[in-house]
Design a protein around this nucleic acid. Structure first.
Lengths: 197, 197
DNA sequence: GAATTATTTTAATCTAGATTAAAATTTTTG
DNA sequence: CAAAAATTTTAATCTAGATTAAAATAATTC
């Protein structure tokens, strides 16, 4: 038995299921992906998935929690490393984007939140809200420390988060493209934030 | 009979169907909205919708074409009015956003493109691509005329378009919010573009 | 290597919701 | 107003795909 429960065969396989599902959802759309599609991608038959998730709703839910985790981890690491608000913002964006287009991807676009059960929906929305708040907090710290020009943090946050969230819509694994995104996005998205000096 | 075919009772009613569908898709998710939901919103029963669209796939398709139209109109008007590239970019964003959060809304998020028929999918993707190209062209004109700082137009375009496309995800008709978006977004999204003078 | 546990399969339901058909109603027109 | 056209309804199918049950296989344990 693996010492770390996250590394157990079961959890590893479940992680593969989630990545396959995210891939299918992003490529074929939610309504276009059957459990059979996801299962076949892993060389399994559809009922096998029920060994890892209770039903399709839970599969979607777990994909979304996973997407939120990736964002949260990037945020926590970026904040932990300190620096000015602007530096933290840039770093967060780089970490998050690196994960999304790198080995943590593909990340599911959260387009079917409304179809989740009330409990799951509330939880995912809460994670999402918390993430937005954390980013707004970075912006506010940047304004306070003078690295970021005064702005409407709510709208600025919405704008930047929208860009991030939309990436999986047009990025489909192309390596060269991944490089461009990582190289350009953090700069592009924060260029407008800097306080003129 | 109306002289302008767009104003015929049929077309007006169809437009209402599309708006209702967009509202439902954005609020309940694609898989969560049945034709019954859309029909009931208009005080109709589900089979009545088949008088306006061939099937659900076409309903989605038409919602997406409509969304693309709104963007194209904003783009054309903004470009037609001339000015520097930066001015055109700002104007386009203002027009597009005003339409989205105003009386042309709600606009459907294009999350189910992959479920469209091959013909419809290709057409929508082509519209989408053309729109992106048009925006990149504005950026290039801005770089040429010196109003916009040199940048990776492809990635910059992707970033800004992502912000726009994501708006229907979190904006749900709140009037005050609509005001903030129109007031802030065009500025926020173009702040990073300006050539330092 | 026998017993236990974990994983996957085949085969069988079951159902929501899309779609169709035919009839009823409403609107328009001459 | 009567006929024709337009719009909507009620009632009836029809099906993909989610889900469940039971059995089969593979991996682990002692």
């Amino acid at each position: 038995m693996a010492r770390n429960p996250d590394e157990s065969r079961f959890n590893q396989q479940r992680e593969r299921v989630l990545q396959a599902a995210a891939h299918c959802f992003n490529h074929k759309g939610y309504s276009g992906t059957s459990l059979k599609d996801v299962a076949n991608m892993l060389g399994l038959t559809d009922p096998a998935l029920y060994y890892y998730v209770r039903n399709k709703e839970e599969l979607v839910y777990l994909c979304y929690v996973r997407a939120a985790d990736v964002g949260r981890e990037a945020m926590e690491q970026a904040v932990a490393e300190g620096g000015t608000g602007l530096e933290q913002a840039r770093r967060y964006l780089r970490y998050h984007i690196e994960s999304m287009v790198g080995d943590r991807g593909p990340i599911a676009i959260m387009s079917e939140i409304p179809s989740l059960t009330a409990e799951h929906r509330d939880e995912v929305l809460e994670l999402s809200r918390r993430h937005s708040k954390a980013f707004e907090a970075i912006l506010e710290r940047g304004i306070a420390d003078g690295s970021i020009a005064d702005c409407d943090v709510r709208m600025t946050g919405n704008a930047i988060m929208g860009s991030i969230n939309w990436i999986p819509k047009w990025f489909h694994g192309d390596k060269a493209m991944a490089g461009s995104i990582v190289a350009e996005f953090p700069a592009v998205l924060t260029r407008g934030l800097a306080q003129a000096t």
